[in-house]
């Protein structure tokens, strides 16, 4: 074995260790969600439950059906508990529906209007364009907490508090970061294409709709993914604008669930966390390449 090969295996070993370290909390989360309640807090470090063959049953109980009263490993009888999806006062399916509504409306608006603005900043020539674009970029520095209080009263005057509207309507107008991303992409499309289209009699709108958008699909998907991530993640917005649980999103619902349980039944809480995180993980697996390339492209200066 050459020195170089040994070196690269050593590095691989180190990276493997680090990766395991990084993924361990998630493995721990899933493992906990497949344990019965009395085995979660035994103080012994175990990944699998005492009876690994019953994992499917424990999982079914934690995630779905719950459990009648039972006798613990220590012989003490304990009260049963409700499964995450069938608990009486927390409705994850409803929260999923609300999150999907916010994501769907927000994503479609965000993609279209960011693309329109990005077209204006890349394919239309006008004096002052770059100056205005710098101002657009500068708005990414405005933190949400700086505007949340007046926004609350603004939305209150619209009658939007307690509805999902504050979470998706602002997305219909695009956002600076996504405009930046799409502008980068649009600028790489050869100008000859739009000129040819122009000669064929297409207007700006025609060029945008028939040439630029179809050619920019990967970038549009990236914006859609980013906004979906944002919606799934957003906690402060729902916390402020939503006031009854029929309108909760998953992030807020998860916190509500934890608050209801006082934070002790870790098997249930981890099952709930797994459920909330799962859709994004699946989405990532399905769109891994686009996702990674999209994030990579944010750092490159145009």
């Amino acid at each position: 074995m050459t020195w170089n090969a040994a070196c690269s295996w050593l590095r691989a070993g180190l990276m493997a260790l680090v990766s395991v370290l990084w993924i361990a909390p998630l493995v721990w989360m899933v493992a906990t969600s497949f344990k019965p309640q009395d085995e979660v807090t035994t103080g012994e470090f175990r990944l699998l439950p005492d009876e690994p063959s019953r994992m499917a049953q424990f999982g079914y109980e934690n995630y779905y059906a719950g459990r009648e009263h039972f006798v613990g490993a220590d012989g003490i009888e304990r009260a049963g508990y409700e499964g995450v999806l069938t608990s009486d006062n927390v409705h994850f399916i409803l929260y999923l529906r609300n999150t999907l509504i916010v994501a769907l409306l927000g994503v479609s608006g965000m993609v279209i209007s960011s693309a329109i603005a990005a077209y204006g900043f890349s394919r239309v020539q006008w004096p002052g364009r770059n100056t205005v674009f710098m101002c657009v970029l500068a708005t990414t520095m405005i933190p949400f907490p700086a505007i949340m209080i007046p926004s609350y009263f603004l939305f209150k005057s619209f009658g939007w508090i307690g509805t999902l509207a504050p979470l998706w309507v602002p997305a219909l107008f695009g956002n600076a970061f996504n405009i930046f991303l799409l502008r980068q992409f649009f600028m790489q499309i050869p100008n000859e294409l739009s000129e040819a289209a122009r000669i064929d009699g297409l207007s700006h709108w025609g060029i945008f709709w028939r040439i630029i958008l179809p050619l920019s699909r990967p970038a549009l998907v990236v914006v859609a993914l980013f906004h979906t991530m944002f919606v799934w993640n957003d906690f402060l917005g729902p916390l402020i604008y939503l006031n009854h649980q029929e309108t909760f999103t998953l992030a807020l619902g998860l916190q509500f669930y934890q608050a209801q349980h006082g934070g002790t039944p870790w098997n249930l809480l981890m099952a709930a966390c797994t459920l909330v995180a799962l859709p994004l993980l699946v989405l990532f697996v399905l769109s891994q390449r686009t996702f990674i390339e999209g994030i990579a492209s944010t750092g490159i200066k145009g």
Binding site: L26, M229, L254
Partner: peptide
């Protein structure tokens, strides 16, 4: 290494 960035923050906090 990338996967943890996909976990929603509320879930991250609880995990």
């Amino acid at each position: 290494i990338f996967v943890p960035t996909l976990v929603p923050m509320v879930a991250t906090a609880m995990i």
